[in-house]
């Protein structure tokens, strides 16, 4: 089966992005496809490369980046939600005159259309939120 995944809560405060990660890992191991994960609301904060959790804790961003590198899963951060919350790629930082970008490896910023497209193109859309 082909799953589309929505992550709608931020890392560490909420379990949602961890549960989504565990679900995706299990789904891929079982032979299912997960072509895309869409990060919305505070979920966009999963994609910052500037988070530094304590060394004895999981690093949620690095887990997702590694998953994308291994399986080619498209990790999409909603641009509208990202701009409100200070998530920028280099192109957008240049365009908006900001002095830094912070998107982690394997993530990309794109529009809400990618969420709708994922709903159309997959067999099941799963939301991980509160």
């Amino acid at each position: 089966m082909k799953f589309g995944i929505v992550v709608s809560e931020g890392p560490y405060t909420h379990q949602a992005s961890d549960t989504a990660y565990h679900f995706v890992t299990a789904a891929l191991a079982a032979g299912h496809e997960v072509p895309r994960v869409f990060f919305y609301h505070d979920g966009v904060n999963v994609g910052t490369r500037l988070s530094i959790p304590p060394q004895d804790e999981r690093n949620i961003q690095e887990q997702w980046s590694a998953l994308a590198a291994e399986h080619g899963t498209d990790l999409v951060i909603c641009i509208a939600a990202a701009q409100r919350r200070g998530l920028l790629d280099q192109k957008e930082a240049d365009r908006q005159g900001k002095d830094a970008s912070n998107i982690a490896e394997g993530f990309r910023i794109s529009g809400l259309g990618q969420l709708i497209e994922m709903g159309i193109d997959t067999d099941r859309l799963m939301t991980f939120g509160d």
Binding site: Y40, H41, A80, A81, R84, G111, L112, G113, L115, I116, E117, I120
Partner: peptide, 19 residues
């Protein structure tokens, strides 16, 4: 919370997809 506003933003963008 921002959920209601961001929901409406998805609805408006999604309307372009003729679903």
């Amino acid at each position: 919370t921002i959920y209601a506003l961001e929901s409406l933003e998805v609805v408006l963008i999604g309307a372009a997809f003729d679903q």
